[in-house]
Nucleic acid binder design. Sequence first.
DNA 1: AAAAGTCTCAACCGCCATTCC
DNA 2: TGGAATGGCGGTTGAGACTTT
Length: 180
Amino acid sequence: MRKACCNKDGRSKGPWSKEEDQKLIDYIKLHGDGCWHSLPKAAGLDRCGKSCRLRWMNYLKPDIKRGNFAQDEEDLIIKLHALLGNRWSLIAGRLPGRTDNEVKNYWHSHIRKKLICMGIDPNNHKIYHHHHIHDVYSSKNLSNSLGNPNADDHVMHENTMTRNIKEDTSSTLDLNLNMP
DNA sequence: AAAAGTCTCAACCGCCATTCC
DNA sequence: TGGAATGGCGGTTGAGACTTT
């Protein structure tokens, strides 16, 4: 995505090429991950350790699940966000195969807007304008704006989410969260 | 058909915590 | 003990894709 720009230490930046990806994969297959600072040199990469770590953690790791989030994953993110706030790595830790970056992106691009559209404040998960919810659900615009042709599904989903949020206090144990 | 506006998401930045010497 | 190095995280950016006008 982002093009390479000036860099203090002269290393490459910006999008990873297939060759760079392959070098990183090959190296980690042989030696395992960790020691990110010395990895680039050892792997023959003109990148900083941080960049290698990020690329591996978010894209190259073999168990990463890419693509659309399932409904239950989305519900879980909302539930966990209500409990934990913007602690994306902790939230991602409860979603097998998902990374903190992906969860964070999905939150900002999809879930946040959805909650706002439902009249739920995404920061504190409180319903801030109940009439708005009613208006939204009585309007055909909702299904268009959310990309779902069946508005009834959204009413049901909103009910599920509202219920989830209400259950938050009792759900901490169910989720078995290990708070640091 | 094309210009303008909006959205998505890969990647960077800066800060903080931990580890090392 | 303390400063430097390193790892990890959340916030933010911006190119390119997509949609609307």
